Simulated scan of single mutants.
Amino acid sequence: MAYWLFKSEPSTWSWDQQVAKGDSGEEWDGVRNYQARNFMRQMHVGDRGFFYHSQKDKAIVGIVEVCAQAHPDSTTDDERWECVDIKAVRPFVAPVTLDQIKADERLSEMVLVKNSRLSVQPVTGSEWAVICNLGQTLAD
């Protein structure tokens, strides 16, 4: 299993909206960055991800699971753009803020710290464990 991070502005797509989609999940559409798209092409059903609220919250608020592999993005006719579908798994007991992540030396190499603008990014297994621990949330 691989781990990922999905960033969304809560005013555009929030954790509560993701949860409301239930087990059918929702397309992670609208991504127009080649690197982020390529990461989605690497994802497999069952991979887990952090759901990150960007803008003012700047915090990981929950765990999602990839429930459909990369397919054409339904929001465009441009065949270059693909997306995966994700479903909510569980919320974090305690959201983990970007400030907490930046302050933790164990996370100093995390893509979120080095390239905070990338909307879809990989997370290592050790980063996953540290953040789940900080968020008082089961890592499985």
Rank of each mutant, 00 (worst) to 15 (best):
P72N: 12
Y52V: 03
E65W: 00
A68W: 02
C83F: 09
T75W: 07
T75M: 03
Y34T: 11
F51P: 07
K58N: 14
T75Y: 03
D85R: 14
N33W: 14
E82T: 14
V61Y: 03
C67K: 02
G62T: 09
S54N: 13
R37Q: 10
A70T: 15
V45A: 05
F51A: 12
Q35V: 13
D78C: 08
M40T: 13
Y52L: 06
M40Y: 01
Y34K: 14
G46S: 04
V84R: 03
C67S: 03
V31S: 01
E27I: 10
M40H: 02
K58H: 14
A36G: 10
K58C: 13
V31E: 00
T75G: 07
T76E: 08
K58F: 09
H44W: 01
G62V: 12
Q69R: 11
Q55Y: 08
E27D: 15
N38Q: 05
D73P: 10
D23T: 10
F51W: 14
F39T: 10
D77V: 15
A70R: 09
D29I: 02
E65F: 03
A36H: 10
Y52M: 07
Y34H: 15
G22Y: 04
R32K: 13
Y34Q: 06
S54W: 09
D77N: 15
N38F: 11
T75N: 01
R32M: 11
I60M: 13
Q35I: 04
C67N: 11
E65Q: 13
P72C: 01
V31G: 08
V64W: 07
K58E: 15
V64I: 15
A59G: 06
D77Q: 15
Q35K: 15
K58Y: 12
E79R: 09
G25F: 02
C83E: 09
H44N: 12
H44E: 10
V31M: 05
W28K: 03
G22A: 12
H71G: 04
G22H: 07
D85Y: 05
A36E: 14
F51D: 07
E82M: 02
M40S: 03
I63P: 08
A36P: 13
C67Q: 03
R32S: 02
D57V: 01
M40F: 05
A68Q: 14
R80F: 07
Q69A: 15
R37G: 01
W28C: 05
Q69W: 00
V84A: 05
S74N: 00
E65T: 12
